[in-house]
Design a protein around this nucleic acid. Structure first.
Lengths: 346, 346
DNA sequence: TTGAAAGCGCTACCAA
DNA sequence: TTGGTAGCGCTTTCAA
């Protein structure tokens, strides 16, 4: 009678006429063993098509080779790009990725976190939901030995490691560029300031405008959510102003899409009638008509850096109690969606 | 001294003054136990914040609650949408998703498949890479008790369950519509015919054109890959024809994007100069200027159906040896990217 | 209705 | 350099 399930280490041991312990040592390249033993084990393993059972390994406290990725939204190209990049690099490190999409719902977020803990993931990449706060649980996880890296948004200032964009610098570049073009009425459309992205992009905007000696006009500052719908709504309100802006800075790619759509609908052309600049680069922006000027964020670098960091935490190569925080460079990608305001002569 | 790790079933048992066996039975609602026992266990579990260790459960042959999703590409909105939809529904079923992006590389594909087996996933949603063939391994997995559902593309005809689009009907609707508008020279740009999507969209196109009594013009049939780059290349070639088409049918969303981009670059306006229709709906198509007419595919339904099917396989509710294959309805979404050909009068 | 005990596949300790 | 053995946390007979 044939054995039913997958071959176990015992089967390999038998075939190689060795003990399971030795086989384990060889397979994991831990401890001592002879050249001959090595060969015997490898042949036997190959013959049986043996693959270690991760569950059993996991039970013994070894790595599960699983990493959680908790993100709010998969309709946002920023997150799909991050997921894609992370997944690809992780695979090289011999980790696999469990994808958790929270829809910015703190309940779901917590449920996912619990699950990741149960599953004994080796670590997690985490973007917190806009509202709500599962800090306690996050901290408990870290204390229980599961490193967590905050990606893109940072909630737990000085509690968790993080890899973020240099939002301030990104905003500065856009505003400086728009100012240089001659714009004086530059609107900002952004999301909740309860995220670092929202907060930093807002304060960055305010600082640059004021530094330029321009009084802040609250009518031009639209803070809502990082969604396409809000982009549409906000741009509508902006256009209905008695003194509308000559340029719009949309603080993320979802908002940008909404802005572009509404502008299309209202038959306002870019950049002739109004200039538009975004934050986050994405394929469709480069292909849009006209191509959209935006702050490019280095997604691959972000993924690589996050993984490096997490990996060093997992391997205990990095043990600093103090959280590490990286800021990634950004760069303004100038395309064709901005020009001098109408009636401006330089 | 405090206990270090997470609480185990033994801790709960102690707190509840019961045996681990009983606690297990209560927690899993299996076998008999009294009301009182139930309460004791639940209280103890709550107090200790006990969560079962999936690894240990997995070892005992129970479900890992993990599902693999193997897809070729995360820059294609079709797959991100499927991933998003699947993830959200799976979560409700208490499954989690391991995301595997193969980049259409059969090596990676196989590596992922092996890994999924090692990890003891309960099942997998699978879209095969365009080239290469890991059928043997897939079959072995199925035989080993891991159900696999082919999604979108079907390689293993009559070997694996599958959930696919009704490609033929989709093509028919587009072509009929274009024909009705008066187009006689309709080009097709599509990907490799080694996928069912590629094959069925091509043969569908050929059939409809011929049925309309129009001779097939090989110059108008562009078969390359389902990529943006190919879309750009193909549309260029088409435009350079001495007798270019009046309408283009782009057989997936990546190709459509390429087509649109190139048309923009060459300053050809849609639909005035040429009509464009796509396959796969996506947000950017509805927001594009002009909004793009396309074949809408029911992603949520596809996800739901796939999960139903997989779930029934996992629970052995469905045991038919014969693979099940579903075809999902599609519907033409008429927007503004098509009109009568220039110089046509009805 | 409950508990004792065996073992899932693996690793790690200690002894040989 | 190798092998015996004791668990990891859980489920599941089988007895009580």
């Amino acid at each position: 009678m044939k054995k039913k399930g997958a071959p176990t280490i015992v089967d390999v041991a038998k075939l190689a006429s060795l003990s399971p312990a030795t086989v384990s040592r060889v397979l994991n390249k831990t401890g001592y063993f002879s050249e001959e033993t090595l060969n015997k084990v490898e042949n036997a393993a190959k013959e049986l098509e043996y693959f270690p059972n991760m569950m059993a390994q996991g039970l013994k406290g070894k790595s599960s080779h699983l990493i959680g990725l908790v993100i709010p939204d998969l309709s946002n190209v920023f997150y799909t790009s991050i997921a894609s990049s992370l997944s690809s690099i992780l695979h090289k490190y011999d980790y696999e990725m469990i994808l958790c999409v929270t829809d910015d719902d703190p309940q779901k977020d917590l449920a996912y976190l619990r699950m990741l803990k149960e599953i004994c993931v080796d670590g997690v990449f985490y973007t917190h939901p806009v509202i709500g706060n599962n800090s306690d649980y996050l901290l408990a996880m870290v204390k229980a030995g599961i490193p967590i890296i905050e990606v893109n948004r940072q909630r737990e200032i000085n509690l968790l490691d993080s890899v973020l964009h240099d939002n301030d610098r990104g905003v500065q570049q856009v505003i400086t560029y728009l100012l240089g073009l001659g714009h004086k009425r530059i609107a900002l459309i952004s999301g909740s300031t309860s995220t670092t992205t929202g907060l930093e992009r807002l304060t960055g905007y305010q600082n640059k405008i004021m530094q330029a000696g321009i009084a802040l006009d609250q009518d031009l500052i639209k803070i809502g959510s990082f969604s396409r719908a809000y982009g549409e709504q906000a741009v509508s309100e902006l256009l209905d102003l008695s003194n509308p802006p000559t340029a719009i800075f949309a603080a993320n790619n979802r908002i940008t899409l909404g802005v572009l759509h509404m502008l299309n609908q209202r038959n306002i052309s870019i950049p002739e009638d109004i200039s538009v600049a975004g934050f986050d680069d994405s394929e469709w922006m480069s292909v849009w008509n006209p191509p959209i000027t935006t702050v490019g964020v280095a997604i691959n670098e972000m993924a690589q850096l996050s993984i490096d960091l997490l990996h060093r935490r997992i391997t205990k190569e990095l043990t600093s109690e103090k959280p590490i925080s990286y800021r990634l460079g950004v760069s303004l990608i100038i395309r064709e969606s901005c020009q001098q305001p109408a009636g401006f002569s330089s």
